[in-house]
Amino acid sequence: MRRRNLACEAPASLLGAWGEQVPLTEPPSPLPGHYVIIRLHHDGHVIDTKETKSVTSYNPVWNMPFLFSLPAGDIQQLELSLEFTVMQARLCTRSSPLGRVRVGPCAPGAGLLHWREMCSRGQLEVARWHQIQPDALGC
């Protein structure tokens, strides 16, 4: 993730991979599809949403950039955050969330550290691994 001050835009790249390999001793089963919903929050409200394409794998990997338009102002003074919701796609029923990652000034732990590093490094991209949490913590 990095910020662009002059254009009031923030690109976010999703590179994630997670999961566990299926042991070879198990019989083959249909692979689940996974996708990620990325929401940009401002003052507690969702102001933009992006979504990846579904990847069918036990260890999905995305290498997808997303560009979010930001409200005018200093990014460190605005109440902004990004929420990444990992979804498991289903064929016959609704998709279900597997977990979330939040990055922003009110995010817990690694999400807060990622936000601070991104703000301090200007236009340089900052990449970090995050552990998926069962529920998002609000600001």
Rank of each mutant, 00 (worst) to 15 (best):
A127F: 05
G99S: 04
M118K: 03
R116W: 10
W115G: 01
H114E: 05
R94D: 12
R100W: 13
G109K: 02
E125A: 14
F84A: 10
V126N: 05
R128G: 02
V126M: 05
C119W: 02
S120G: 04
L80I: 09
S96R: 15
V101K: 01
G122T: 05
R128K: 12
Q133K: 04
I132G: 03
R116M: 11
I75Y: 06
S81F: 10
S95D: 14
R94T: 08
Q133W: 11
L91C: 01
R90V: 00
P97W: 10
Q88G: 00
P134N: 02
L124Y: 15
S81R: 07
I75S: 00
R128W: 07
L112H: 11
L82Y: 15
E125Q: 09
E117R: 11
Q88M: 07
E79R: 13
A89L: 11
E117V: 05
G73S: 04
P134M: 06
F84W: 03
H114R: 03
A110Y: 05
V86K: 08
L112A: 13
G99D: 04
S96E: 11
M118H: 08
Q88A: 10
C92V: 08
R121G: 08
G109Y: 13
S95T: 06
T85I: 01
E79G: 01
S120C: 03
S120L: 04
P97A: 02
S81V: 05
T93F: 15
S96D: 07
